[in-house]
Design a protein around this nucleic acid. Sequence first.
DNA 1: CTGTCGTTTATTTTT
DNA 2: TAAACGACAG
Length: 748
Amino acid sequence: MCYNTWKKVDFLVKRGIVMSILDGLNSEQREAASIIDGPVLILAGAGSGKTRTITYRIAHMILEKEISPSSILAVTFTNKAAKEMKERVEKLAGEHGTRVLVSTFHSFGVRMLRTYSEKAGLMPNFNIYDAGDQRSVVSKIMKSMKMEAKEVSKLTSKISKLKEEGVTPDEYSGYAYSVQEKNFVEVYRKYCEELKRNNAIDFSDILLYTNILFKDKEILERAQDRFRYIMIDEYQDTNKIQYEIVKKLASKYRNICVVGDEDQSIYRFRGADIKNILDFEKDYKEAKVVKLERNYRSTDIIVESASAIISKNISSKGKKLWTDKKSSHKIKLYEAYDAAAEAEFIVKEIEKLKEAGKEFSDFTILYRTNAQSRLFEDSFRKKSIPYKIYGSIEFYQRKEIKDIMAYLCVINNQNDSLSLARILNVPARGIGDTTIEKLEKFREAMNVSLYYAIKNCDAVNELSPAVKTKLKSVAMLFESWIEKSEYDTTSDIVKDILEKTSYIEKIEENEREERGRNIQELINGIIEKESETGYISLQDYLEEMSLVSGTDNLEESEKAVKLMTIHSSKGLEFPVVFIAGMEEELFPNSKSNVDNEELEEERRLCYVAITRAEEKLYLTYSKQRSIYGITSYYRVRSRFIDEIPNKNIEFVGSEGKVIEAFAETDSFEDQNYMKNMEFLFSKKKSAPAEDDYRIGDMIVHKSYGKGKIVGIEKLKEKKDDNDKLKIQFFESGEKSFRRGMLERFIIN
DNA sequence: CTGTCGTTTATTTTT
DNA sequence: TAAACGACAG
């Protein structure tokens, strides 16, 4: 409905014919949207019209409560969600809608940081580092500390996690006792220093600094007075620091409305804390709680099945999702001989349904891990069916794109030594590792940027004259680009970079076409933005590029089958959904076998996957699958399948025949029992050899059944037999055994 | 400084 | 299995 329509509605309202904008909502949604003052918690089940409720709420505030649109802040997690919400608000509230700030947490933060950069100890032209940049910094530091550059990703994510929990290196050093931990603190500290030197921030910093800015009373109060009405979407996925930012911002007027679904919290591994939503009522005692339980998306079979699965979770607030969409389509379950057969079945099924009148774009295949997409690609290509994979290798993570971006980063911010080091010899221009090392040493000693070191390379004695000439010519190039950036468009600068460096010509021939195409796509993207807004500054462009992700450009119009991980499907809906790889160890993931919280997260993931489907849902699994080159046989179907009421499932055999006696095939428990038996009677009963146990090994104990080794405690005596094994049994909980005492049968 | 060969090591990833 | 990285020879 457009603004003009609302003018008409307004007219009708005055005549008493229509009461309010909110008449476009059902009674629960209306209740949620009509409470404007004070804290509100909206628990919105999957497909319950969450976005509709929020946008109507905003329109209601502006048009009927005469609240100034610029005092409304709506925070989402993805740019896509922000864009969609913004569009819908503008449709409802017209011009007023454009003044509402709809933003992601991160772009809100960057906005604050650009305004108050000095207060955060930054220069306003700071660059934003992504995960790859973070890893490069960490690995460089580790090398400089003569540490083995192992587990870089682990350390990097640990740093991010600590930052987002607000723990500084100094604070953490108090907890670091082991050598390893002490080294880590050093890496962490140096990492922070390096970013500062480069005038760069990472994603966690955006939130961290924002939170720090809000410790300044004046800044906080200005923000509070500006944004008197706050709405947070997907609140179940907020982490600690986001929680704190929100808390500060809302503390003055307490007009905070959070929307979320604890059953769809799937980013725990990234620091999302489900407690934020579960404890909202404790934080805001006067909070009103509204549940949206009517699902408009899916059929009754799908809704009922999803609810049945999620009811197994303890950490649920207990919504009762319902729908009046009756359906005759049961969930189809297919058991494949191997993973290739699984893919083939799905492709055949898609062909069949296409003949019956569906479009390719109606189908979506969901899987737990990205690696699973390969098989489907092969099958689709064989049949030349159009398909599109979302979120596998992000566009902007490609080498050529990152290279160009690095050039731009240096032009924007000469302190960014990381970006400069990346492209100093790209394309190859005879500046090798040794040269870079010498320069690094120099800049370390003089405490200057790499850029400065290159510009003044005459002062570096160890460098040969030939190298100095090369370095100076690079510096000259950058000088010219920096000058250019004052008056030229970003797209022209990119073109100039390509030209002056012969970047494309120097790509290896067999890769030139594809990479060249990607670069062209990048340029087209810039030109598009420039034509939209007239002009986009280098800084704004870089900012946008670092905050926008690959899943944002999911184009609806494309007539292709969609493939994506379950994670990236959140918030989306599709007519026909296939969930592939419904197997134990894969989904739920093997790591969740021991940790119940992990298992609950997997279950929520399953809930998300199922509730994406509007009409038809297929679950498939395979008896064989190779993972990392090792083929595992006799795979057991996912326990989640058995958590769905039997009557909702139709078992389809490998020939596509319907087999009635689905219930009689082996369930997770049955198969486990069989497996136990198999191993009890197998010859693998030999006494344990040295180093035969590893954490994660499956074992079967005579009286306690199947379990997993979760810990090995080395005792001081040298006898391995005295090692204590901590075992988590599926049935009887955690128990410890002396290695020598244990009768065991390792399964895998 | 560049290219090749063997070794290593694997979820999920809104920003 | 396959990609990505580090060591070493040219």
